[in-house]
Design a protein around this nucleic acid. Structure first.
Lengths: 158, 158
DNA sequence: CGGAATAACTTGACGGATCAAGTTCTTCGT
DNA sequence: ACGAAGAACTTGATCCGTCAAGTTATTCCG
């Protein structure tokens, strides 16, 4: 490939990317810190529990959790094993369906989400949702969806 | 504290946060993947080298790099040790100034940044900068700066 | 119907990140 | 001028994520 002068960022683009990349590092760290300090949970662990808690039967297949949380199956497997060891989640193989496995939120797990959610949501509001005007939040959504589309040329939409 | 009904997210807020949090996970992963595959660098390592390369003397104090890359000094110290082992960076104590240490980009390190930058910038353009309209990018910058301000009630601005 | 390919995980080894503690200078108070 | 406090790292233990390889059904194809 001929790679003429690469297309550097303009001053505005640079500033936007600088801010964005700092957020990419610091925001997850801030959320982790809150959840860890108050409930001994990772942001990712919280997401797993939260996704399960939204199901009526508190049950979801491993692959679906992985898709919902943007994680690899491998990472999820390790995390669910830890959560299971803490009694927050239970795993059960779906009979007659290949190697499919469901994760089920236990009562303890549900209680944990219920305890952790308000503080977490409050932090998300404090840092982001309540801090920016509604139209910027709408822009953020558009941006996010665009970026996800470009990163992953089509993961199925549920 | 009395914790009346916690303030849940509205439908729009929820959608924005869902997209944003997915980006928070996937975008760094995508950038890491490109840099790792093409140059054997982490996004974070690249940032360290890039920040140094922007200085005329290719030199920066450890703390300043840490601030510029939003990392802890500890993390930076480990990474710089690795980079030093690869000959991309050199460390030198600043004499007569406490424990201050400067990191200096070597020629090999500079060459590495020069080699890696175009591909990296192209990816950032591809995934974000060129994918969203200019006014959304401006919004992203505002949002980013706001969020950073809320996470860290004042780190100094250079 | 039998074997190869595929899907859906699990596991183990390894590398990177975090946290707490340890160094080593400098400065500040008395 | 001397000891205590603080600044600026470094180090080691531990934990988490990733990558490659291993399992275990199921399905597809000849």
């Amino acid at each position: 490939m001929t790679a003429d002068e690469p297309q550097w960022l303009t001053e505005d683009e640079r500033a936007a990317w600088l801010a964005a990349s700092a957020v990419l590092i610091r925001l997850p760290a801030a959320l982790d810190a809150q959840l860890q300090a108050d409930h001994g949970l990772t942001f990712f662990e919280y997401m797993v529990l939260a996704v399960l808690s939204e199901r009526e039967d508190r049950t979801l297949q491993m692959s679906d959790i992985a898709a919902a949380t943007s994680s690899s199956l491998s990472r999820l497997s390790h995390v669910v094993k830890r959560l299971e060891a803490q009694g927050l989640v239970r795993r059960e193989r779906v009979p007659g369906a290949g190697r499919r496995t469901n994760a089920v939120l236990t009562d303890a797990g549900f209680a944990k989400v219920v305890a952790a959610a308000p503080g977490h949501v409050a932090r998300v509001r404090d840092l982001l949702v309540d801090a920016v005007p509604a139209e910027d939040l709408a822009a953020l959504r558009r941006i996010g969806e665009t970026v996800l589309g470009r990163i992953d040329p089509e993961d199925r939409c549920p």
